[in-house]
Amino acid sequence: MNQANEYKTFIYTALPCEAKPLVAHFKLKKDTAVEPFAVYLNRDICLTVTGPGKSAMSAGIAYTQALFASVEHPVMLNVGIAGHKDRDLGMLFLIDKIIDLDSGRNHYPSLVCHPPCATDSLQTASIPQVQYDQPHLCDMEASAFYETAARFSCGELIQCLKVISDNQQTPAENIEPKQVSALIAAHVPAIEALLAEMAALAKLITPPEPRLFKQLVQQYHFTASERVQLKNLLCRWDVLTDHREPAFDESGLKRGKDVLRWLDQQVSQIDFCL
């Protein structure tokens, strides 16, 4: 399992055929040490195939964030297929409203990036919608993606892209995996453009890396979540001490957990006033 890299972009698909063209384009390699889900990696992208349905999507996000999250505000993108009453097959949409048909909850992704395509609303249901009697796009994962991703990043960096795969004239039972891969592959340039804009936005949102961060990460072992804690503690230290160098007592620091405990104690003892 490769945790040496900082994965800044997380892509989630429900189906292997949705992931296939993205794996090829971004030159991702499968992490064979991860068993519950198919995970593909390069230097800064982590793509997870979760399986269909809301529960699978939520589990896939939580699992890979626990393993690979290493930045405070990761880019998180759901790419997949959706049905619609009369939209043409192959049309790409950036989702501006997600309706959970089961719970009735609505979500509104923040579209602060320049959309690479048209926008539309989407309805998520636990079972396939085969009647095509709704004005929205339909899928089985987006609401769970958005709700779960919101626990790990900010709304501006959480987006859904959907390609129309079926409609009244060409219903869902006719969908073939090769067709799905071809539909996604046709929009790889738009997907890449959106990811680039989201990455640029993430740099504006994320504070600069604090001093000593790289040094401490090289000196001690930190898990992915511990690196995030370390960065937050060092940022607090810099603000409260006007960037004074912390006087580490290295004799008592053997692991990353020891460093975090020491820093937390030091920060808690600092007197400050507003």
Score class of each variant (00 low, 15 high):
residue 34 V to T: 11
residue 192 E to M: 07
residue 12 Y to C: 11
residue 146 Y to T: 08
residue 104 G to Y: 03
residue 73 H to L: 07
residue 19 A to G: 09
residue 53 G to A: 04
residue 140 M to I: 01
residue 190 A to D: 05
residue 183 L to S: 05
residue 165 S to Y: 00
residue 166 D to A: 10
residue 2 N to F: 04
residue 35 E to N: 12
residue 175 I to P: 07
residue 154 C to I: 14
residue 266 Q to A: 08
residue 211 R to V: 13
residue 156 E to V: 04
residue 56 A to V: 00
residue 186 A to Q: 12
residue 169 Q to V: 07
residue 261 R to G: 03
residue 155 G to K: 13
residue 118 A to K: 15
residue 199 A to R: 14
residue 225 S to A: 12
residue 177 P to H: 07
residue 175 I to K: 02
residue 131 Q to G: 02
residue 26 F to L: 10
residue 32 T to N: 09
residue 241 T to L: 03
residue 241 T to W: 01
residue 136 H to T: 13
residue 8 K to I: 03
residue 165 S to I: 01
residue 198 M to Y: 04
residue 265 Q to H: 11
residue 167 N to S: 06
residue 125 A to M: 11
residue 121 S to D: 12
residue 64 T to S: 15
residue 212 L to E: 11
residue 31 D to R: 09
residue 240 L to T: 02
residue 228 V to T: 05
residue 236 R to A: 13
residue 8 K to T: 15
residue 268 S to W: 04
residue 45 I to L: 11
residue 19 A to N: 01
residue 236 R to H: 11
residue 72 E to H: 04
residue 186 A to M: 09
residue 189 P to T: 11
residue 228 V to K: 04
residue 15 L to V: 02
residue 54 K to Y: 07
residue 12 Y to G: 02
residue 6 E to G: 10
residue 119 T to K: 08
residue 212 L to I: 12
residue 104 G to T: 09
residue 109 P to W: 03
residue 249 D to E: 12
residue 226 E to Y: 11
residue 104 G to I: 02
residue 136 H to K: 00
residue 106 N to S: 13
residue 124 T to A: 04
residue 144 A to G: 09
residue 251 S to P: 00
residue 244 R to D: 15
residue 228 V to N: 03
residue 75 V to W: 08
residue 49 V to A: 02
residue 87 R to G: 09
residue 103 S to E: 03
residue 272 F to K: 00
residue 137 L to R: 00
residue 201 L to F: 00
residue 93 F to W: 10
residue 65 Q to E: 09
residue 51 G to M: 01
residue 122 L to I: 13
residue 115 P to W: 01
residue 97 K to F: 06
residue 175 I to H: 07
residue 178 K to Y: 04
residue 11 I to Y: 03
residue 219 Q to F: 01
residue 153 S to I: 01
residue 51 G to N: 05
residue 31 D to P: 14
residue 231 K to A: 06
residue 259 V to W: 09
residue 120 D to G: 06
residue 212 L to C: 05
residue 239 V to W: 06
residue 74 P to G: 03
